[in-house]
C-alpha cells in the first residue's frame, strides 16, 4: 500500500519557479519545498526561509580551535616540559599564533561542514521525492514545487487548483512506500 507524500508541480525555468514559490508561500502552506538543480537567487526570500544557522557551528568550531591551539602550546611549553630554547621565554602569545590560527580555521571548517550536514539532516539516502519518475531532472535541468500531505492546509483539489494557476509542465502525486 502506498501513501500520498505530496503533490509536485514541474517547471522549466528559474523565473517560473520563483513566481511559483511566492504563490505557495502567500497561500499559507508551511510543509513544502522547492527542488532546483542549482541555487536560484532570491528563492530563499520568495519561500520565506530565514538566514541559515550554519555560521553558529562555524563560530563554535573556530573558537574551539583557537583555544585548543593556545592551550596546547602553553601547556606543553610552559607547564608540562619547559625547555630553554634560544634564550627565549617559555611562553609568549606571539609564537603560538600560526598554530592557533591554523587550528581555528581547521575546526571552523569542520564546524561548517558538520553544521551544514546537521541542519540539512544529511545523509538521507532515501526521500519520497526520489520516487517521482522524472526525479533525475530535478538535479539536472528542471524545477519543482512539492506541497506535502502532512501540511495542515493540505487538500488535494485545492493544491491542484493552485498549481494549475502557475502553468506548470505537469502535476503529479508523489507516493511513499508504507513501512511494513
Amino acid at each position: 500500500m502506498s501513501k500520498t507524500y505530496g503533490i509536485l508541480a514541474l517547471f522549466e525555468s528559474a523565473p517560473a519557479i520563483y513566481q511559483a514559490a511566492k504563490k505557495v508561500r502567500s497561500a499559507g502552506y508551511t510543509k513544502w519545498d522547492v527542488f532546483t538543480p542549482f541555487p536560484v537567487h532570491g528563492l530563499d526570500g520568495a519561500m520565506g526561509i530565514k538566514r541559515s544557522k550554519v555560521p553558529v557551528f562555524t563560530f563554535i568550531g573556530g573558537l574551539m580551535g583557537f583555544t585548543l591551539g593556545m592551550t596546547i602550546v602553553w601547556y606543553m611549553g610552559y607547564l608540562d616540559y619547559p625547555l630553554i630554547v634560544g634564550g627565549m621565554p617559555y611562553y609568549s602569545p606571539v609564537f603560538p599564533f600560526p598554530v592557533a590560527y591554523e587550528l581555528t580555521i581547521l575546526l571552523a571548517a569542520f564546524g561548517t561542514l558538520i553544521g551544514m550536514f546537521t541542519l540539512n539532516k544529511l545523509p538521507m539516502h532515501y526521500h519520497p521525492v526520489m520516487n517521482y519518475e522524472k526525479f533525475r531532472h530535478l538535479t539536472d535541468d528542471k524545477f519543482a514545487v512539492v506541497i506535502e500531505a502532512e501540511d495542515e492546509l493540505f487538500n488535494e483539489s485545492e493544491v491542484r487548483e493552485l498549481f494549475a494557476g502557475l502553468h506548470p509542465t505537469e502535476i503529479t502525486v508523489i507516493t511513499e512506500e508504507e513501512k511494513a
Binding site: 625547555l83 630553554i84 630554547v85 634560544g86 634564550g87 627565549m88
Partner: peptide, 13 residues
C-alpha cells in the same frame, strides 16, 4: 635551538 621542530637541541642551565 629556535628552529628545531622537535626540541632535539635546547639549552641547559
Amino acid at each position: 635551538e629556535q628552529v628545531c621542530p622537535v626540541n632535539a637541541t635546547v639549552h641547559d642551565e
